[in-house]
Amino acid sequence: MKHPRHIIISLLAGFAALAAGAQNPSDLRIGEVLCENTSGLVDGFGNRNGWIEIFNNSNGTVKFGGCYLTDDASNLKKYHIPSSDRSTQVGPRQSIVFYAGGNASLGTYYTNFTVEKGESVYLVSNDGRTIIDRMDIPTDLPADKSIAKIPVGIKEMDFEVRVNDKPSPGSYNGDVDAKTKSEIIKEKDPHGWVLTLISVMVVFSALLILAFIFGWIGRWNGKGKVKPAPKAKGKVPDEIAAAISLALRQELGGEVYAAIALALDDYLGTGVHDAESFFITIVPSQNGNWNDKTQTFRQLPR
């Protein structure tokens, strides 16, 4: 760790590791809880129980196997969600429902406790200690009504807790009849002039700012940062000509000759070569016979 480069790489690796762990159970929320179910959701065994909805508040899939659900703050490991069940994952902005019937032997999604008014329900991380989220159930929650976290705000990442007259187990708690952006635009701007005006302004602004920045950078660069290209004089100074002459007398490779030729060409400004090319192609002399097939012939034995 003495070398600064190692420290920087370690820091970058640390940030990358943090980013990789972005979608984890901490993104889960207890989205909705219903205690008294007389006419609502029926479980797989035909029973009507209370239920707990877990909502994934992230834009990535989250695995929740190994986490815990409980209604007892002194016993955070009351119901262990089996980590061996491959179905224990929830998609982005999706929900899953646990039936709170008190009989966990019925399956993964059946808790070993029931939910009661006035209690709190906790979602606990797979370490068994960290409370990810909790939902306090009002004592006066009417039958067939749920207490729900409704996503609010432009990003819909924050929540408002309120009693939900129309429980929606397993589906989004927001306005299910919400209009799409396209429908909203169609209502507000039926002919498209507003969107067009804004868009044109944004495109022009973005490119105008870019033009200003690069105009400025160009001027700044021109003030002594970049030496002007040597002008064609049509004549190489005597001392350079002597150095070239000396170099050419040596037994140098073709690459060196090519480099000298290119440098001279650049200096004199007489020609154009592609500055973007990454390599120089040296065509072997047509008179060379090193790969001539006739050189490999041999006389047939007689």
Binding site: L195, T196, S199, L207, G215, G218
Partner: peptide, 23 residues
């Protein structure tokens, strides 16, 4: 483009084709 940044604006003007077609 970098040598003549002002030409960026022509690229912006031609995008009117997108918004004209939108309308």
């Amino acid at each position: 483009l970098i040598s003549q940044p002002r030409l960026l604006l022509i690229g912006a003007a031609a995008q009117m084709g997108i918004f004209g077609a939108y309308l």
